[in-house]
Amino acid sequence: MSDVSAHPSDPGPATPDTADWTWVLTRPCPDCGFDPDDVRPEGVTEILLDAKRRYAAVLARPDARTRPSAGVWSPLEYCAHVRDVCDVMRRRLEQILDGGGEQVRFADWDQDATAAEKAYWQSDPAQLRVELEAAFDAAAAAFDRPTRAQLSWPGLRSNGSRFTVESLGRYFVHDVVHHLWDVRG
């Protein structure tokens, strides 16, 4: 394992994840155990707020900066990623709602480029905790807003994957739950 000091040097990029994870909307994830059938739109907020608490505990661990192996993010880096996932998914939800029921197209988001640009590995755990908690709170509040009639409103990802307000919430929850599994949170 590679431990990083208080002034970490660049550990290099993580192995890019090029998988299309939209399959988790139709069947359980064999890794983290997420089952899309267990997530109801009214339960997304509760799941996000529970995850906020669990990620905060991950950031408090003494090994938060430690990469488990070459090419794999440390828990700190995963937490920085999840902060950004919260913001991206919140913005996508807001975009759908602002579309008034018309299909909207999401902007591309390159998670690996974002990790490098923001130097996730240099994050200060205390500051990241504040940012992560704020991102979870904002996302939870956003996903608490849609009405039953808005759940079917559409959004389209740049690769052609179609989402609704409801499926975007499930997809988002899987990402959050899966990364908790990644960091053993």
Rank of each mutant, 00 (worst) to 15 (best):
35 D>Q: 11
35 D>S: 12
35 D>T: 11
35 D>R: 10
36 P>N: 12
37 D>G: 15
37 D>K: 14
38 D>F: 07
38 D>A: 15
38 D>H: 14
39 V>W: 09
39 V>I: 14
40 R>L: 12
41 P>T: 06
41 P>S: 11
43 G>W: 00
44 V>N: 13
45 T>N: 07
45 T>W: 06
45 T>Y: 04
46 E>Y: 01
47 I>M: 14
48 L>H: 10
48 L>A: 14
48 L>T: 01
48 L>I: 01
49 L>T: 09
49 L>N: 12
49 L>P: 00
52 K>C: 11
52 K>Q: 15
52 K>V: 03
53 R>K: 12
53 R>E: 14
54 R>D: 14
54 R>Y: 04
54 R>Q: 14
54 R>G: 05
54 R>M: 09
54 R>W: 07
56 A>I: 04
56 A>L: 13
57 A>L: 08
57 A>M: 03
57 A>Q: 10
58 V>E: 13
59 L>P: 03
60 A>Y: 01
60 A>R: 10
61 R>D: 09
61 R>G: 13
61 R>Y: 08
61 R>W: 10
61 R>T: 08
62 P>S: 09
63 D>Q: 03
64 A>Y: 04
64 A>D: 06
64 A>R: 11
65 R>Q: 09
66 T>R: 11
66 T>C: 02
67 R>P: 01
67 R>T: 06
67 R>Q: 06
68 P>W: 00
68 P>S: 00
69 S>A: 13
69 S>N: 02
70 A>Q: 06
70 A>I: 03
70 A>D: 09
71 G>F: 03
71 G>T: 12
71 G>Q: 09
71 G>W: 05
72 V>D: 02
73 W>K: 07
74 S>H: 03
74 S>V: 00
74 S>I: 01
75 P>H: 04
76 L>N: 08
76 L>V: 00
76 L>F: 04
76 L>S: 06
76 L>I: 00
76 L>R: 11
77 E>L: 01
77 E>I: 00
78 Y>E: 11
79 C>I: 02
80 A>H: 11
80 A>S: 14
81 H>S: 10
81 H>E: 12
81 H>P: 12
82 V>C: 10
83 R>F: 04
83 R>T: 15
83 R>A: 13
83 R>Y: 04
83 R>Q: 15
83 R>L: 04
84 D>C: 06
85 V>I: 13
86 C>P: 03
86 C>Q: 13
86 C>R: 03
87 D>L: 14
87 D>G: 15
87 D>I: 02
88 V>A: 11
88 V>P: 03
88 V>C: 07
89 M>P: 00
89 M>S: 03
90 R>W: 05
90 R>V: 00
90 R>C: 01
90 R>K: 09
91 R>L: 08
92 R>Y: 05
93 L>A: 04
94 E>W: 03
96 I>E: 09
97 L>E: 07
98 D>G: 13
98 D>Y: 02
98 D>I: 03
98 D>R: 14
98 D>Q: 14
99 G>C: 04
99 G>S: 07
100 G>L: 07
100 G>C: 08
101 G>F: 10
101 G>I: 14
101 G>N: 13
102 E>T: 15
103 Q>L: 12
103 Q>T: 15
104 V>S: 13
104 V>R: 10
105 R>C: 12
105 R>W: 08
